[in-house]
Design a protein around this nucleic acid. Structure first.
Lengths: 242, 242
DNA sequence: CGACTGATTGATACGTCTCAAGGATAGTGG
DNA sequence: CCACTATCCTTGAGACGTATCAATCAGTCG
């Protein structure tokens, strides 16, 4: 996961007020501001924009005039096949960049998973800023390197792992990304989104989750919340020791 | 496919003497020299190295001291799981770069698919050269952008396409990469390599190829050569219109 | 020529998908 | 605030595609 994910893992110092949307947005803005000085030169060129759940930010093939950064909410990057099949290549959380390094046209679509606020930067300005600042170049390259690594692991997952391994890995990566070590985790995307990220059907994802609950490895207070009961067991499942 | 693939598609102006290894190597050197002036500043730092079939160039986890460029032969990038499963993320042909932008340790292994000659550049030198040359930076970014796009398509393939669609897409990408419009194509990698690239088993790959032959869409003079009989049909199969 | 490695083919098993139904959740309007 | 409704999630039964296992075949190298 994580496209050009900022290394500021949104500095979630404590797991408070996590389920309050307004509070989360504020938190995001703070963390974007105080941890990402390297990107501050871009600030004057950014325009804030809001997208509703499932709204399209841009489509594959659109002219790539802007690059983006997530302020709050969640965004998915995906490819749609003509017959309706869909593959999600990444979920983006607050602080993550996306739509960079597109040559002419976007090579994928970006859509809001849930109400999202993003900052748009004209690509021209990004290019210019990067040209002028070795530090920013370095930061962007780090984000790219991370993204390439994540995609390689995604390839392994889709090409060589079982349904249960994929679901377990996915949950672990969500936990890692959430940054905090709470045992409770907020899952912002739908089951269909998860399925399309993992290259599975929604039913298969459900069954895997059900099995994890049955085996007391996880436990779900509600649809979008999840408590990790046995992290070690989950890691074992993710690596295929069963 | 194509990791940091040079945009000089090895300028195969004619399809002559393709199956003669010595001739191909010469061809490669020529095309590297006369089309890639932008990278010439790297030349003094490069060391040539030769690898035998299936020899390891570096392993995942090795310290990433060098970046590489293929002079001749074919290289595969892959991840190995502890239980022996393997996912190939890319095949590299002459002119392609690999091992760039690795942070500290390589995040995948590189192995020679067939006898290969590569040039090794100390990453320090690469970084310095890129710092000093906006043109080279631009070229590297273009290669990265291409690589990201290819990986996204690979994700779609592994996550959402059937075995036949994957095999058909793979053959088409090989044809496209070979650059020439001959109807005959050289396939340098083994069936197992293809399977591990496509996230399939060797048997499934075989059966798909057999079916293509049966339907007179392709035709195979021998194991590693292939004639395209009906390119349109192959493209239809690749996009899942069946 | 003979042995080895890699490729092909067949029979069967298994995992995931598909289709269908029911249940939970969230959004909407009264 | 509640009822209504649409959407999403879960579960089950069965179909289907690909994996697995085993045998044979072809190609390559000594």
């Amino acid at each position: 996961m994580s496209t050009l994910q900022s290394t500021s893992h949104s500095a979630t110092s404590a797991g408070h007020a996590r389920w309050n949307a307004a509070s989360r947005a504020t938190q995001a803005l703070n963390s974007l501001c105080d941890t990402d000085e390297d990107f501050r030169p871009l600030q004057p060129f950014g325009t804030k924009q809001r997208f509703k759940r499932n709204e399209t930010i841009f489509n594959e093939g659109d002219e790539a005039k802007y690059a983006f950064r997530v302020v709050s909410g969640v965004v998915r990057l995906c490819k749609h096949l003509p017959d309706g099949r869909r593959q999600i290549s990444d979920f983006l959380l607050e602080g993550d960049f996306f739509g960079f390094l597109e040559s002419g046209e976007y090579s994928f679509s970006a859509e809001a998973v849930k109400e999202a606020v993003v900052i748009c930067y004209p690509t021209r300005q990004i290019d210019r800023a990067a040209e002028g600042s070795p530090v920013m170049r370095k930061r962007f390259l780090e984000l790219l390197a991370k993204r390439l690594q994540d995609m390689q692991e995604h390839l392994v997952m889709l090409g060589r792992q079982t349904a249960m391994e994929r679901v377990a890995s996915f949950l672990l990566s969500l936990i890692e990304r959430s940054g905090n070590s709470d045992t409770i985790l907020y899952i912002p995307m739908s089951r269909q989104d998860i399925a399309d990220y993992l290259g599975l059907t929604i039913e298969t994802v459900c069954r895997a989750l059900t099995e994890l609950k049955r085996d007391r490895i996880i436990d779900a207070p509600n649809l979008h919340q999840l408590r990790l009961t046995d992290g070690d067991a989950l890691e074992i499942l993710a690596e295929g020791e069963s």
